[in-house]
Simulated scan of single mutants.
Amino acid sequence: MADPNTNINNNTGGEPPKGGGNTGIALLVGGLVVIVAIIAWYIWGGQPAETVDGDTEVNVEATAESAAESVEDGAEDAAAAADNAADSVEEGAEDAAAAVEEGTEDAAAAVEEGAEDAADATGNAVEEAGDEIEEATDGASADADADANAEVETTQ
């Protein structure tokens, strides 16, 4: 059995459990919200919008004219940019054509010089070959003459 002197508290009487402390934080947050709302009210005018009785006239012509001027200005700017781009492309093409022409002239000069060198070399080779043929012919003629003279002497 349980001891009758033991006090068991099942919250069926006596004092409620202590807790809370969140009341102060809630009050502080609420105060900050009110302060921010007041500051916002003053920043954004603080008064409701006024209503105007009667007809309201809106001038759309001025807006249409300024829009037309803006479009015209934009078109002029685009045309100027296109002209600049065309000029740049034209200059680039002229530079490229000049470079190609210069390269072609250099290549033609090199081919011409190479052809002249080849012709000179061929002429020299032909001349040397002619000299060798002449020497060989002269040598052969001399040998033939010597052989002929030797035969003539031996037959005599």
Rank of each mutant, 00 (worst) to 15 (best):
E57M: 07
T63V: 15
V58W: 04
T51G: 04
A64S: 13
S141I: 05
G139S: 14
V126Q: 11
I133V: 15
N7K: 12
V152T: 08
Q156L: 10
S70M: 07
T51S: 08
E116T: 09
A118I: 01
A115M: 03
G74P: 04
T63Y: 05
A93I: 07
I35T: 13
E113Q: 12
N59A: 05
A26W: 01
E151P: 00
T104G: 05
G19C: 04
E94F: 02
D143F: 01
P16Q: 11
A62L: 04
T6F: 05
A68K: 03
N22M: 00
N10E: 03
A37S: 14
D120E: 15
E91N: 15
A108E: 12
E116R: 04
G123W: 00
D145S: 11
A67E: 11
V34G: 14
V58N: 12
A119V: 08
G139F: 05
D117A: 15
E76R: 12
G114A: 11
A118M: 00
E90T: 11
E101K: 00
E57K: 06
N9F: 05
E132N: 13
A109M: 03
E90N: 06
D55T: 12
V111I: 13
G20I: 03
E72F: 05
G30M: 09
A79Q: 09
D53M: 01
E151S: 11
A115K: 03
E151A: 14
A99S: 13
A62V: 09
N124Y: 00
G130C: 13
A96Y: 06
A108C: 01
G24F: 01
E65P: 09
A110F: 02
N5C: 03
N7A: 10
N5S: 13
A107C: 08
N22K: 01
A140E: 13
S70L: 08
D147R: 12
V89W: 04
G31I: 02
D120I: 12
E15K: 12
D143P: 00
V33M: 10
D77V: 01
P17R: 07
E72V: 01
A78L: 07
E128H: 05
V52A: 15
A119Q: 09
E112A: 14
E15V: 15
A49T: 06
A96N: 09
E15N: 14
S66M: 07
N84E: 14
A75W: 00
A68S: 14
A81Q: 13
G74L: 00
N59Q: 01
G45H: 04
D95G: 11
A125C: 04
E50M: 06
N22W: 00
V29C: 05
